[in-house]
Design a protein around this nucleic acid. Structure first.
Lengths: 198, 198
DNA sequence: AGTGTTGGCCAACGAATGTTGGCAACCTGG
DNA sequence: CCAGGTTGCCAACATTCGTTGGCCAACACT
């Protein structure tokens, strides 16, 4: 139904003249999704940012959902737990996540969209299940608890991202990187490795 | 500009025939905002739920923002910190918040709207500043740090609400009330009362 | 009874959105 | 040089949205 099926992932790079346009669209889309969420990030606004016609977005990405899927492609690149000292895993994780959030707006875009769009929420569930959960399974003392422990870690990391980058609570925005790490690292460390409380 | 100015907050209750309709609209609005967020919660859908005409919503609440303001009126009723033992403040807070989230959907609505709507985000900042911050100021050992400590508490509580009630990560949904309290209470306790780390 | 007020619905407007098809300009390979 | 595909824009579509104004019935008060 989408019509022209482009060989977007052919082994040879196959430079097209439109590759630059495609990339520009994706960048603009990421910024808009991060700033406005799914509904308010209109194709027309994204096209305006990319200085092209809205119909180009449709031709290259099929529809709005396809554009979102192409724009939000996330690899958390979580550290390998076996290679870090067990008592530092909390700090390393928090540092890694803070760097991820600060570096680019893809995660902010995903968070904003995940809250209002079902597809976005499913994407977040997928990232959680396929990237955070396996790592937690290798860190936690009891595999049975790793699902809950990973959820706790996600709640704290996403909560900080929410208050700091989306809701922009002033005290959360004012926190320095080192403060966030100093406060959150023990929390994550406990969620991952401490014995079950109560 | 809104025209008919109703005496909505007159000292006498002044029962109007339309009070039931007004309440029905607010209930439907809360449900829709909680389920769909600001943009996708259309006035038409809310009116359909309330079994009245969309124009009634406009007449009673002026416009969509007015409806939102009327629907999301939140008093966290946080416990008075002087009345609870200092070592239990974390547990009491977590229990209180979990009960709040479970009891009604107003907080879910506010969270969903706060992420995509500027007015919603400002409302959340206001609730944080006027309800959580003053309490933190009375609990924290050092008043200078109370802003940061309150932000940390908010990040953990909102993060759990986000993963559990909005994104619905399965492991977060499966957590029992007692588990949440057991895991989060020490975190909140530390954020509020422990000495500054690092 | 009669008069003004309130509660409610219907129909419509203007704007914005995702999406589509057609058409001109450009490049590319023979 | 020229045919075929690619890139891009323009104009339009159907739909949906928030919002408005008019109309009618039910009520309240004197």
């Amino acid at each position: 139904m989408t019509g022209t099926e482009t060989d977007s992932d052919s082994p040879a790079p196959s430079h097209r003249r439109s590759d630059a346009t495609r990339a520009t669209i994706l960048t603009a889309a990421r910024e808009r999704f991060a700033a406005d969420g799914y509904e308010r990030a209109t194709i027309r606004a994204i096209a305006r940012d990319a200085k092209i016609d809205p119909s180009m977005v449709m031709r290259y990405y099929g529809n709005k959902e396809g554009l979102f899927a192409a724009a939000i492609d996330i690899d958390l690149r979580l550290p390998v737990p076996e290679k870090v000292p067990k008592e530092d895993v909390g700090r390393i994780f928090v540092e890694h996540f803070v760097d991820l959030w600060e570096k680019n707006e893809v995660l902010t875009a995903l968070l904003r969209v995940g809250v209002t769009n079902a597809a976005g929420a499913e994407r977040m569930q997928g990232i959680f299940k396929e990237q955070l959960l396996p790592v937690a399974l290798r860190v936690c003392p009891d595999p049975e608890q790793s699902r809950a422990r990973a959820a706790l870690v996600a709640s704290q990391m996403l909560g900080m991202a929410l208050t700091r980058y989306v809701l922009r609570f002033p005290p959360a925005v004012d926190l320095h990187r080192e403060e966030i790490v100093a406060w959150l690292a023990p929390t994550v460390q406990r969620y991952l490795t401490a014995p079950h409380p109560g």
